[in-house]
């Protein structure tokens, strides 16, 4: 009862309120209230994630498992950023309220949190994502062998799109006229046509499929047919 029925009823009630509010305007305040609660819980989920990270890495350090030194670095970075952000270190007060240091904008230029974003978070994440350029290229070289018609279509589209969005593509088909039927075969125009027609068609079908899938899964959860989110056990 406490472990399965009540959570299921809670999910059903919350979801049905959100759906009904779309059809009955007098339920909108209730929907707004529920959305605020949802946002609060989503923010608390980050705290839960942080707590879990602390738990896992502290355990690793205390057990002296392989790589525990890196766990120490993770913990130091975690606690450091948390202290800087939560205590608003280096934040200047607002001009209108100079007495309230904690009222200042924690993301303003020059604040401790701004330093973390500008010199740690942004460069590290951008570099990690930029490295994917190398790995995508090497994976593509290994995986995308033009061995059938479908693979040829995929490769040639990627090639046209890559060329069409660069100066090289414009240069390569510069000999074609700018007006008339042949102008459609200039790489920059061909790229736009591919994006507007076959790619739009494919994306639309994918989005329609996702929408129908989302709606059916949502209904299954709200009607209590799918209870997998409750996990195992009674």
């Amino acid at each position: 009862m406490l472990k399965r029925t009540i959570p299921m009823l809670l999910a059903m009630a919350a979801g049905i309120v959100m759906i009904l509010a779309y059809f009955f305007p007098w339920l909108t305040p209730l929907q707004d209230q529920t959305t605020v609660w949802f946002n609060i819980l989503a923010a608390v989920a980050f705290i839960l994630g942080g707590g879990n990270l602390l738990k896992v890495h502290l355990k690793k350090v205390s057990d002296r498992r392989e790589g525990w030194a890196y766990s120490m670095i993770t913990l130091a970075a975690f606690v450091g950023v948390l202290v800087i952000g939560l205590f608003k270190l280096g934040v200047n007060p607002l001009d209108d309220f100079p007495a309230q240091r904690m009222a200042g904008d924690f993301r303003a230029e020059g604040s401790g949190f701004w330093y973390v974003y500008e010199y740690v978070f942004a460069p590290l994440t951008a570099t990690i994502f930029s490295m994917l350029a190398f790995y995508v290229a090497s994976a593509a070289f290994r995986a995308f062998r033009a061995k059938n018609f479908e693979a040829i279509l995929l490769l040639s589209t990627a090639f046209v799109i890559l060329l069409g969005r660069t100066a090289a593509g414009v240069f390569l088909t510069d000999f074609l006229p700018e007006e008339g039927m042949l102008a459609n075969f200039r790489l920059e125009n061909l790229t736009v046509w591919i994006m507007n027609n076959p790619v739009t068609a494919g994306n639309r079908a994918i989005m329609i499929g996702i929408a129908l899938g989302t709606a059916s899964v949502s209904l299954k959860i709200l009607l209590g047919v799918d209870r997998s989110y409750l996990g195992g056990g009674d």
Binding site: N39, I40, A42, A43, V44, F46, I47, G49, G50, L53, Y70, S71, I73, T74, L75, A76, A77, F78, V79, G80, V81, L82, G85, L86, F106, F113, V116, Y117, V120, F121, L124, T125, I128
Partner: peptide, 22 residues
Amino acid sequence: AEAIVVGASAAYWMVIGFWETM
């Protein structure tokens, strides 16, 4: 550097969630 990314990003989103939502 990877360990720093993990720790800093977890704390980063916690701080954002605290000041902007909670």
